[in-house]
């Protein structure tokens, strides 16, 4: 049987890739994608822990469902915000949205 640590390592690598994406990408869509990868890593960790430490309590799956739901809502809001900002600035690169820094 695959050990728990293997799944957790996959989750950790996904998390690192997601962090890199969120920091290094310039377009808003790519940052949303990085956030999705982060959420995926979290979900993977939760399900792995559920399977190996408490397989008779199904609350973890409900947690994963909630994470997926929140990811979907976040994507919808993020895309709407992106459309709004694009209409105002004609760009979706987050470096252009620097009003609050001034």
């Amino acid at each position: 049987m695959i050990p728990l640590t293997a799944y957790l390592i996959v989750g950790a690598i996904l998390f690192a890739i997601g962090v890199y994406t969120v920091i290094a990408q310039r377009a808003a869509v790519m940052i949303l994608m990085g956030i999705e990868v982060l959420l995926n890593a979290i979900g993977l960790n939760i399900i792995a822990f559920w399977r190996f430490t408490a397989p008779t309590d199904y609350s973890a799956q409900i947690f994963a469902i909630l994470i997926i739901t929140i990811g979907a809502v976040e994507m919808a809001i993020g895309l709407a915000l992106m459309m709004l900002l694009y209409r105002q600035r004609q760009t979706v690169e987050v470096d252009a949205y620097a009003e609050l820094k001034r």
């Binding site: 979900g43 993977l44 559920w50 399977r51 397989p55 799956q61 997926i68």
Partner: peptide, 14 residues
């Protein structure tokens, strides 16, 4: 991976 962890519902939902 979810399906391997016997969480089929989450895998399909994903």
């Amino acid at each position: 991976l979810f399906i391997l962890l016997t969480a089929d519902l989450i895998g399909v939902l994903q």
